[in-house]
Write a protein that binds this DNA or RNA. Sequence first.
RNA 1: CGGGGUGUAGCGCAGCCAGGUUAGCGCGCGUGCUUUGGGAGCACGAGGCCGCCGGUUCGAAUCCGGCCACCCCGACCA
Length: 568
Amino acid sequence: MKFTHATVPTLKEKPAEAEVASHELLLRAGMMRPLAAGIYTLLPLGALALARIEDVVRDEMNAAGACELILPTLQPSDAWEESGRWSAYGPEMMRLADRQGRDFCLAPTAEEVITLTVARIAPSYRDLPLNLYQIQTKFRDETRPRFGLLRGREFRMKDAYSFHADAADLDETYARMYEAYSAMARRCSLEVKVVEAATGLIGGDISHEFMVVSGIGEDVLVFCDSCDYGANAELESHRPSRAIGSPGGAAPEEVHTPDMTTIQDVAAFIGVTPEAVIKCVMYVADGEAVAAFVPGYREVSEPKLAAALRTDDFHPLREDERELFGGLTPGFTGPVGLRGVRVLYDSELAGGQGMVCGANRLDYHLRGVDEGRDFAAEPLADIAAAVAGDLCPRCEGSLGMARGIEIGHIFKLGLKYSEPLKAHFTDADGVSRPMVMGTYGIGTSRILQTVVEQHRDEKGICWPTAVAPLPVELIVLDPGNGSQAEAAARITGGLAERSVQVLTDERSLSPGIKFNDADLVGLPVQVVLGKKLVDGMVDLKIRHTGERRDVAAGDAVGGVIRALEEAP
RNA sequence: CGGGGUGUAGCGCAGCCAGGUUAGCGCGCGUGCUUUGGGAGCACGAGGCCGCCGGUUCGAAUCCGGCCACCCCGACCA
């Protein structure tokens, strides 16, 4: 493939829109171009890299016994109405109407459609299990698209759906998908951590996310330093390592705390640590006032709060909603004597003694408050976020935090779709039962950018061989030189016989430009044809190490093959 | 959704505050010559609804209003 034919519009300068390295490099290396927010054209090299990644995914799915199919991307609302997600998915779904005014969406995922399809073609337990997947473009009208392909509104994803006669059979496939996903990441040279995750809009009981640890990740992860426990912060569980409260004993006493609305201020003023203060965060959930209490050194976890409240429709109290709390003031609200609002206490508050909290009176706090005696922490719920140093829920290790890029997510769905969409089968006893389902997604375009994020240096991308758009770039320094052209043809032909594709840069440009473009594009092995060819030598460069070798022109093909075998 | 920022040639930017010649610079692009092992030199040249609509003015890239697009931050921690 010629460099010019591949249209590789490299950029010398960083495009203004690129905030993260991988985004910048994909643009500068001429692999993609933006069309609108979160929507990109993949140019030939980008399309090739995506194809390599999707080949890996396809290969592992097939090896795990799944079969590929193609589902419609344009889907009628009916299916989504039946599952209840037409409304539940909200504004994130791209919706449109046809000329008759019938509602459709551009599919963000495909549980409904696959379930309806399988319901009609697999009536018997003899037809199960099934594991069907597709690799397709998906659409989600993200609140805030960003970081190039990492959070796009149009993106590529492999989505698989499995159907089983019982939960044990689902467990088996789930485990196989877990292994397949690990293998895909490995083959893409991505190091993943698997964490327990919330099931969100997809639903179901159990799910695991495949995360690439990265400072630019949008998810916060919690890990144990001694066992394999790992969880997304949105549902982690932890055991506190610090004690709350303070030495006390006496009855509650009001303290004048003018203008002290932060935990820090109040704790310092009264002479206790934040561990002794009860933090009250005020929310409005489904139009009702909710006071969430957590230890002063922690923050409320809104994803956990949503789970505890059983609603997503809540937000922190706004100025104009104060009357819902009977005029109580943020900063001075506490559990003692609080009435007329819904309350939730973080479990850690149970049994706290000698606590400090808002007095429900402007500019006053209470100290010497004991849970049980002065107020009852009911109901208890896990609504606080973890802090580094908390203890593991499973062992004696302690928890640390990291950020991660979610590349894959697998779910045990159970009956969430098969019941409403009536995906029933007849079991061996002649009884009709809903199928037990699983769903497994992996973002291939997101992997594309994640690979770049994890494999690069100051000069450009360093593609791992397995997913490089092409394995070799051949740089012909003087394309007008007959012997160089001849050698280029011979080497390209020799490599083609071994199924090694070559990107040939035979542009009439100065060498520096071609060298720099080659490093920017980052194919694993570079072959340079230049002056040394007179002495029968060519240069070979290993991109990821920068190592250069002189190789006899006659052995160039062998040299490249050897170099590719060594490259990661 | 809330807040902030930016829209001027393919890319990166200046010009705008203090309105007034043919709207500039670097890179890129075209032609010619010279160059050719890490982003070459000279010469000539092409390329702009100054995001869109409206207003103010003798005159608007510049001032005012509205809209659109893109980017960033935040989504309230008391």
